[in-house]
């Protein structure tokens, strides 16, 4: 009887462990995040009280920090991801060509990615300092500026510093994915294009880019996921300042949930960030996925 049942539903039994695993690492935490967001839960005061959707109401309509931090998140993620994608595309194309020391260059290119992000943040904080920072020294030696600039003390330049540190650290990741994608494009297509008299730009636009779309999609989605929840660089480089000009939703969640133990409210911000991330992934899917997959 049991054997019959087992044989009949064999395919279900096979995937059961995976379902349990997924339920444990994905479904339960997600459900718990939403469930916790329905409570006023302050670990420091030991208070837990059901408040329904009040956390969301407060967050969206009363919290003076949420919307500015959301705007900072979009600026940070949008700029850092776009720049690293463009740079990744350029670098991967260069490294895909038969150039000298290609192997060594590929390894060197990975170095920034190997450094822990907190260290990247600390290093860039030194680089951007006004008095002893290397960035000012280089600009002054090149004659671009004649006075030191305190990059980390103004809102815009501090955000630009965070974005710079981020794409410096994460461009290698994009490059690796795109390089793998480039290597999967058959040479025959380029040879045929050569026969047809296509120039470099035409080959890139009509062959490389369309065939690289799946890799770009993967790189874009992964980079966005990493950047939208990134906390390390912001914390180590600016600490969210000056003022709150580089505070992002990830740092807000960290402060609310981890440091201030306002678990319920922090979870509500987490749910909103999760929804934004899901929407972004669907948007990328809609724009970049091949037609066959969309259907």
């Amino acid at each position: 009887m049991l054997k019959k049942l087992f044989d009949k539903h064999f395919h279900y039994w096979i995937i059961l462990p995976s379902i349990f695993l997924l339920a444990f690492v994905v479904v339960y935490p997600t459900f718990n995040l939403f469930y916790t967001s329905l409570f006023m839960k302050n670990g420091q005061l030991g208070i837990t009280r059901f408040v329904g959707l009040q956390n969301y109401q407060k967050l969206l309509f009363e919290d003076s920090k949420f919307w500015p931090y959301l705007a900072h998140t979009f600026i940070y993620v949008g700029s850092a991801v776009t720049i690293s994608l463009i740079l990744g595309l350029i670098i991967s194309n260069i490294l895909n060509k038969a150039i000298k020391f290609r192997g060594a260059l590929r390894t060197m290119m990975l170095l920034p990615w190997m450094i822990p992000l907190v260290l990247t943040g600390i290093t860039w904080r030194w680089i951007m300092q006004d008095i002893y920072g290397a960035f000012n020294a280089i600009l002054m030696q090149l004659g671009i500026i004649d006075q030191s600039i305190a990059w980390l003390t103004e809102a815009n330049s501090a955000m630009a510093s965070v974005i710079t540190a981020d794409f410096w650290a994460n461009t290698p990741f994009v490059t690796i994915i795109l390089l793998a994608g480039l290597q999967s494009i058959p040479d025959q297509l380029y040879e045929a294009a050569n026969v047809d008299g296509a120039n470099g730009w035409q080959k890139f636009w009509h062959i490389t880019l369309p065939l690289l779309k799946p890799s770009i999609f993967v790189a874009l989605v992964m980079r966005t996921l990493f950047a939208i929840r990134a906390l390390d660089i912001v914390y180590a480089l600016t600490g969210g300042g000056p003022g709150s000009s580089t505070e992002v939703l990830a740092s807000y969640i960290y402060n609310l949930g981890r440091r201030w133990l306002r678990m319920g409210y922090g979870s509500a911000v987490g749910v909103i960030l999760l929804l934004i991330t899901i929407m972004l992934v669907f948007l990328f899917m809609y724009i970049l996925k091949p037609e066959s997959v969309k259907e």
Binding site: E154, P242, R259, W260
Partner: peptide, 21 residues
């Protein structure tokens, strides 16, 4: 109480005053 929250709020506003915002 809530030293960290108080400190962060204070620090942010001190920075706003120091950079002229």
């Amino acid at each position: 109480p809530f030293y960290l929250q108080v400190e962060q709020t204070l620090r942010q506003e001190i920075q706003n005053a120091l950079n002229g915002t």
